[in-house]
Design a protein around this nucleic acid. Sequence first.
DNA 1: AAAGCACCCTGTACGC
DNA 2: TGCGTACAGGGTGCTT
Length: 302
Amino acid sequence: MPVGFQISWQYSMPELPEVETVARGLRATLPGRTITAVKVLWARSVVPLKPNAFARRLAGQTITGVGRRGKWIVMSLSKGDTLLIHLRMSGRLLVEAEDCLDSRHLRAVFLLDDGRRLSFVDQRKFGRLHLTDDPGQVLKALGPEPLSDAFTAERLTETLKRRKGRIKPLLLNQRFLAGLGNIYADESLWRARIHPLRSADTLTPAEVRRLHEAIRAVLAAAIASGGTTLDDEAYRQADGQPGEFLGKLVVYGREGQPCPRCKQIIERIVVGQRGTHFCPSCQPLQEKKLKVRGIDSETNKV
DNA sequence: AAAGCACCCTGTACGC
DNA sequence: TGCGTACAGGGTGCTT
């Protein structure tokens, strides 16, 4: 049970920082290992092949690399195949001893040539193991990597001014930007002091710059903390330790508590069918009256 | 283009 | 206490 607030029913919801942490952990142990056999316990976890064909095609392939694109883990294989893994809500990847006890929510197992196994555990069964010889087909739909050099404030400006929708759902749209989920979208908007209901095309240049900086800073800080673990059963770092970003969340799951910047009480609303947390004082929807009197709302100076 | 909803799932909270 | 129902989440696909 996480300390500090009542969200025991929630899960890890792996976003970019959690997926990056998992990918780094796997990269340290999997490359060079050969998959000797595969067992699928929940057929719909594998795609697009049926379980038998999926298992047959993977057996004998050596893992050559582990990367990440957005929320996808990208596992390169020796025969030109790629295993794309999406953890969705509750997926976990564990490297464990071959003879270990099966988790209650085990959905697929990859036996390795060193006496260990890679276990895919997924309580809610939303996660997917996508085996393909053309990963670009899946990944081309994704927007830019927020931490790459390709994601610049200028590029963000260009994209935003052509969008009339609300900013929060846009941040969650993986075609627009790859890797943000509900937690880090809310945290980024708080840091940038932007209301989640603002229309994308109305953001000022200063707001866009703040948003760009906020997204990168929040994601980088979360990666440095090994991600966010909301629940005991959920996402873990490679060494089994929970991510440490939970205590650093400012708005997510903290409705009713004071904003650390201004002490106003944090609110929760629903935006695009997603719970959304923000500070009504730091992230006003209406222009502040101060501005009418000639005070710049960006700098708070006259 | 944008927004809403159903769907896929499960465990937990909550009302009766 | 026990039961049914609502609900959280990411992503896709469909409709308005």
